[in-house]
């Protein structure tokens, strides 16, 4: 053997370590990913500006007819493209529109959280109009500060299996996702508990009372602002990302010994 062998193996662990650490750091900063993802301009969410003198009901009607009626029907009776809205209740309308999931950017099974297409007043107007279709669906819940410990207990029993213990969401059957709760507002969390959007089960008053919902909402808020005690949280998904970091650590130590030791001729 003459000369040094190729240098590939020497830099390989370093490159690997740096790459992996980079990926980890990127994934450990959910804020980066969230802000980097452009929120697509809602396709059907454009409506004419409110005319002066228009009542809230009229405003709601005009927004509904321009943005919702094509799928949910002129009078909320539903169509092949969308379910009926009669009796869904104020909480449901506020949740779907307020989280930007409706109007759909494109027709797909699971709507994604986006920046809402309407401002607060317009959403209120839509709620007023859609609830006028009748029915007794849940009203927009009010939330109060609740018992944090009780909230943690209820959350871990009922919510963690789908939304993950850290609130970052989890996969479901068929590639759908129980979304992350880390961007949800308190009212949206309470609304989701009451209406059970999509595949999510619903917890009406007889299953979870107001105090219990308040407690869960309080705990979700705590999850949102928990300081990362003990460092980067690696997405709060447990051993998968820990494995990646652990392997990066081993790669780093291999670089160290590569520097320490010499190479056989």
């Amino acid at each position: 053997m003459t000369g040094r062998p190729a240098r590939v193996p020497r830099v390989f662990p370093l490159v690997l370590g740096v790459l992996v650490l980079g990926v980890v750091l990127a994934s450990a900063l959910p804020g980066v990913a969230a802000t980097a993802a452009p929120s697509p301009a809602p396709g059907t969410g454009t409506a004419a500006p409110p005319r002066p003198g228009q009542t809230q009901f009229q405003r709601g009607e005009s927004l509904y007819q321009s943005s919702c009626a094509s799928c949910h029907g002129q009078a909320g009776q539903g169509s092949q493209r969308g379910p009926t809205l009669i009796g869904v209740g104020a909480a449901s309308v506020d949740f779907w529109v307020g989280t930007g999931r409706m109007p759909l950017a494109e027709e797909r099974v699971d709507a994604q959280r986006r920046a809402p297409a309407f401002d607060e007043q317009d959403i209120d107007a839509l709620v007023t109009y859609v609830t006028s279709f009748g029915g007794d669906g849940p009203a927009i819940p009010t939330v109060h500060p609740g018992d944090l410990t009780l909230g943690r207990e209820i959350y871990l029993q009922n919510c963690a299996a789908c939304h993950s213990a850290g609130g970052s969401g989890y996969t479901q059957v068929g590639g759908q996702v129980a979304p992350s709760l880390l961007e949800a507002t308190p009212v949206q969390v309470a609304e989701a508990i009451r209406i059970g959007p999509g595949q999510m089960p619903q917890w009406p008053e007889e299953v979870l009372d107001q105090g219990q919902v308040d407690a869960v909402v309080t705990y979700v808020q705590e999850l949102q602002r928990l300081p990362n005690r003990g460092g980067l949280d690696l997405g709060r998904i447990g051993p998968v990302t820990e494995t990646v970091v652990g392997f990066a650590g081993v790669a780093l130590l291999l670089v160290v010994i590569r520097r320490l030791g010499k190479r056989a001729p």
């Binding site: 450990a28 943690r152 207990e153 871990l156 963690a160 213990a165 850290g166 999850l223 928990l226 990362n228 005690r229 003990g230 460092g231 980067l232 949280d233 690696l234 709060r236 447990g238 051993p239 820990e242 970091v245």
Partner: peptide, 11 residues
């Protein structure tokens, strides 16, 4: 600097 097994979150 890097969290591992945050048992307080798992409950």
């Amino acid at each position: 600097l890097v969290q591992i097994n945050p048992i307080w979150l798992w409950g």
